[in-house]
Design a protein around this nucleic acid. Structure first.
Lengths: 349, 349
DNA sequence: CTGAAAGCGCTAACAC
DNA sequence: GTGTTAGCGCTTTCAG
């Protein structure tokens, strides 16, 4: 084996485009090597200068910066990821019973926000469903996956938080319930419910029923608890029926409400989709909205405006952006960050 | 410099988890090296066996497969990307004048479909806006970006197709207009327009106006041409006003239509969003829909169902999925793939 | 058919 | 401070 001193090897190896005059188009991007040669220093020094991860003389720093600037040097995130084991994509992991959860507008918006956060760092975003019955197998697969830079949990359960694989700690966040290990980002759903009830009571409603979110979803219980508390505080019966987040459960929920409490004069829905289903059922039953029954949703999707639905806002983009950032950087404060929700008054309540 | 025979070096280097009994959770994923040792062959052979990129004896193949299977080996996409220069993410590049294009439902759906295609390969997805005025600078940046595995163009212009950087060829596709270099995937917008006009004419409409899509967008011209042809074939005046894809241009377009041709009895919109804006204006002007004026949209978004809008379907997920696949694999046939659109009859026409 | 060796572009010990 | 040396996990000539 012939042993060649490294530096000489470097010098003898041609640096293809730097001295040639290839078409700008075909020219491959500059590497650390190119910058080092231009600045007259070693690759290590360039690395330190660029990342700021070690001592570099002011002089070297200046020359490196100038060279990098001139050649439009950008560190290759792939090489970085390989050496640091940091991964190249943020996974939006949605718990659910079927892939329908990936087809909903909400998930699409979370993914979009995540992708936009990832873009400048050369990272990508993906989605994956975690089966409700056994989310841990999915999480373990993610832990073993070297491409995973961070995980944004959507529809987090207690089991997932408790069983979070070690390797995922510090780069996993939750949109919803969190834990000591997992910072959480969520909307002030409880406040939204309280405000909605207050509005209904103020406008004379006395027999309010709530169609709740999925029973297995911890963060969906806060609005329910708030509804109960607000109702009791106002001296009203805390009527609730179990629901989900889709149109269908809005229909079933409204049917259940009308069957159990025919005198209901207001329905509070866990989300707009559910409210739309309820509106449908009310219409079919000949109940006028808002005259006979008021309806309040939650989310303020485009459809809410079109159907004149009174609803509380849900700043999904803001939440998801903060969450994705949290999954990439070391989380700022490892507690819960809640985003405000405000009631938008329209015709339905 | 001490020169150590490679194989001996390999043998003397401990293979951390393979012989130890670390917690399953903390155990790092198996590498080529682990499989090679277990199968009693070299890394090169394992590589050939796994990728099928070279001659391997049946015996070696069997042993490698067994070992890989047993250890749950999956090749690290990052290392692969580094050595092959293949990139780790597919970029959805949307041409537009402002970042609003990234906030629309359509783009979110394209991104979701792209992310789902990328997921199994360990790749991610991102979005990026290409400024309408100068999309080439953006494309050149993408060409220089090593993380880019493929590009899905949305709202493609002729200039972009003509000036596509060499390094992007073969891994760029277009949702919309394509070229010899760029395979295209689109909906049968022309057919949709023809069918819509046929329906309107059949139901007695004679003074049909179209609010077109953006003038700068080539693929948006096909429906316009089809509309003109259909109208003329039916002996009707081919009335068109320029529009865009947003609610606002639907409103402005409808105003323009009513101002120029007060006797209009049908409006064909370039998309549902535009149709919704038109509906609003018609209501404000006291025109009854569909009695006085029929309205037909295009896309069949959720809002179309809610507002009882007659519209033609637009299988965005199908199109984007095919496009993303095309950006990753060598495109099947380098022509245009058109997806069918069908008219959904509701109350508005 | 198979193994050794050479990197992809970068970071991180470790010496000077 | 700065350079040298080792890799990260993989593919790929190039010899045998």
């Amino acid at each position: 084996m012939r042993t060649v001193p490294a530096r000489q090897a470097l010098l003898s190896r041609p640096v293809p485009w730097y001295d040639g005059d290839v078409r700008d188009d075909a020219r491959p991007p500059a590497t650390l090597e190119h910058v080092a040669r231009a600045a007259g220093v070693s690759r290590a020094t360039v690395s330190r200068a660029i990342t700021g991860s070690g001592p570099v003389s002011a002089d070297a720093l200046r020359r490196v910066r100038a060279a990098a600037e001139a050649m439009g040097y950008v560190a290759d995130p792939i090489a970085r990821a390989l050496v640091s084991g940091a991964g190249t994509r943020v996974v939006v992991a949605v718990t659910g019973t079927s892939d329908d959860v990936l087809d909903c507008e909400y998930t699409a918006r979370v993914l979009m926000a995540t992708a936009r956060v990832c873009a400048p760092d050369g990272l990508g975003a993906t989605v994956r469903r975690l089966p409700l019955g056994n989310p841990l197998t999915g999480l373990e697969a993610l832990a073993r996956d070297r491409t995973v830079a961070g995980v944004v949990l959507v529809n987090t359960t207690e089991a997932m938080l408790a069983g979070l694989p070690r390797r995922l700690r510090g780069r996993t966040v939750s949109i919803g319930t969190g834990s000591a290990d997992v910072p959480s980002f969520d909307v002030e759903g409880a406040v939204a419910a309280t405000t909605s009830v207050a509005h209904l009571v103020r406008s004379g409603r006395r027999r309010i029923a709530m169609i709740t979110g999925p029973a297995w979803l911890p963060c969906a219980q806060h609005p329910v608890a708030a509804f109960r508390a607000a109702a009791e505080a106002a001296g009203l019966p805390p009527r609730t029926v179990a629901g989900g987040f889709d149109r269908r459960s809005g229909e079933e929920g409204a049917e259940a409400v009308l069957a159990r409490w025919p005198d209901t004069d207001a329905i509070l829905a866990s989300c707009d989709e559910v409210a739309l289903g309820a509106l449908d059922v009310l219409r079919r039953h000949g109940r006028r909205v808002p005259d006979d029954v008021a309806v309040v949703g939650f989310d303020d999707v485009l459809a809410a405006e079109l159907t004149d639905l009174t609803t509380a806002t849900h700043p999904v983009e803001l939440i998801a952006t903060a969450a994705a950032r949290g999954a990439l950087e070391a989380p700022v404060g490892d507690g819960t960050v809640l985003f405000p929700s405000t009631l938008v008054l329209r015709r339905s309540a």
